[in-house]
Amino acid sequence: MLISAQDISRRYGAADLPFFALRPTSLEIEAGAFVAVVGASGSGKSTLMALLGLLDRPSSGRLLFEGRETTALRPDATARIRNRRIGFIFQQYHLLARMTVLRNVELPLVYAGESPRNRRRRAEAALESVGLTAKFHAMPANLSGGEQQRVAIARAIAADPVLLLADEPTGALDSTSGEGVLGLIEALNAQGRTVVMVTHDSGVAARARRVIRMRDGEIVSDGPADPETRHPERAAS
């Protein structure tokens, strides 16, 4: 099992008046899965994704990543796991504006301590695999939204992680660019990478093989995607 969460919760607010962004929840994600997390805004999707990506610590429960209990790990150890094993894709791309596309994609490899030659080679390969061969030395601001998100995907896969976490990856894109991004994510999953993708768009969610529905900090359903809606040509709308 890639991820095994046991009764994890995320609580905000005072102890006497707690607010649960995520109520105690258990779930497992097997290696190679393509999971969509859907639900209304504020239902706790991002909270769950942050916990699965070790960006946040659960208020309770245990989280095993590749069989290793992570909730008591020191920040350096979780940083290392995020660096080597997880790639993140965000709705707002989160590219660093003052760096070229290539430097942005190299960034995870910089923190991995890769040599300049290696990381350049790997960053170029990642950019090629998302179809941005011509944009190595462009600045992010000069790219379209779809191109920026593809740079972000290249950055997410540059260090060759096992898990891709995408929080509303098509949320800021028009339908054509969104479809391109979705296609890339599907292809990455097809290569064997586990994908967990947060979306509030059920059409997008239908592209996954498993759909987790959330409401008010709880998982209300978890199962295979509705085969009725698994039609790529309708999904990105």
Binding site: D76, L107, P108, A112
Partner: peptide, 16 residues
């Protein structure tokens, strides 16, 4: 702060 968040997400340690 968002830049710091991104750097932390992709593997920067607090000391980095």
């Amino acid at each position: 702060t968002p830049e710091i968040g991104l750097r932390l997400a992709i593997g920067a340690r607090p000391r980095d």
